[in-house]
């Protein structure tokens, strides 16, 4: 199905009605298998012990936190360049989900760091740039909530999202630079080239399941947003009719 076919909100709602249950069931199934593997099959890491099981949430949520920004960037391009009518719906729907996953990534990272590093938070490069990403998400959500007209809010948010997209690699680079300046290798990096397949398989399954969950959530939030705009339009029409009558 071409993207342009979904430009019609009614057609999108029909698509969403079909796609949301599929993605939801897929997510539930994959996550269930992933959780089973993570707790009952996957071995403990020889260094991290059982805390490696936190990473089965941490890594997928980190992945989604970033992927969601990519989705928002593409939607922002859709708003400003192609003027796709659903692009700003997609932007708005994605922001809270991305923020939630980024927050989850930070929380699980802190809970992993406490037993492993002895502290909930270090100003490690990755943690710091994830925190900045969360700040950007929250700023975008605040922007969406401030402007009442969805069209104007969408274009403003699109500009900010794109500026953020240009900036995030720069922020990442500068935080890396800053971090090596202040903290020479005090932190054990997880992973490296060799993650054993007994750990990698559940991780991948969890990641794919979480992505399916994201798709289901995003489509549902988009559907809600379309309905919200219909309600808004009907209210305005009703108010206008009331004013002229």
């Amino acid at each position: 199905m071409a993207l342009i076919d979904l430009a019609n909100p009614t057609r999108f709602l029909a698509f969403a009605r079909a796609a949301i249950p599929i993605a939801g069931v897929l997510a539930a199934g994959l996550l269930a298998v992933g959780i089973y593997l993570a707790f009952f099959v996957a071995p403990e890491d020889y260094q991290q012990g059982a805390t490696v099981r936190i990473l089965y949430i941490h890594v997928p949520s980190a992945w989604l936190g970033m992927a969601c920004y990519v989705v928002m960037t593409l939607s922002a391009l859709g708003t400003l360049v192609w003027k796709h009518p659903l692009a700003d719906v997609s932007q708005k729907a994605a922001a809270p989900i991305g923020a939630a996953f980024t927050l989850l990534c930070l929380v699980t990272g802190a809970l992993w760091g406490r037993p492993m590093w002895g502290t909930y938070w270090v100003w490690d490069a990755r943690l710091t740039s994830t925190l900045v990403l969360l700040l950007i998400y929250l700023g975008l959500i605040a922007l969406w909530r401030t402007v009442e007209d969805p069209g104007r809010a969408g274009r403003a948010a699109a500009v900010l999202t794109l500026v953020g997209a240009v900036n995030i690699p720069i922020i990442k680079f500068s935080v890396d630079w800053w971090n090596t300046l202040h903290q020479p290798t005090s932190v054990i990096r997880l992973g490296g080239p060799t993650i054993h397949s007994s750990i990698l398989t559940p991780l991948l399954i969890m990641a794919i399941g979480a992505t399916a969950l994201f798709v289901a959530l995003h489509l549902s939030a988009m559907r809600n947003e379309i309905l919200r705009r219909r309600v808004r339009t009907l209210r305005i029409l009703a108010a206008q009719r009331g004013a002229t009558a």
Binding site: G139, L143, A156, V159, G164, S174, V175
Partner: peptide, 28 residues
Amino acid sequence: AALAVTLRRGGLLVAVLILPLSIPILIF
């Protein structure tokens, strides 16, 4: 400042939106 045209208010919100983007400048 340009976003404040849309927002119809500035102050804290604009600062919150821009501060994360100014981190690299601050660092270097």
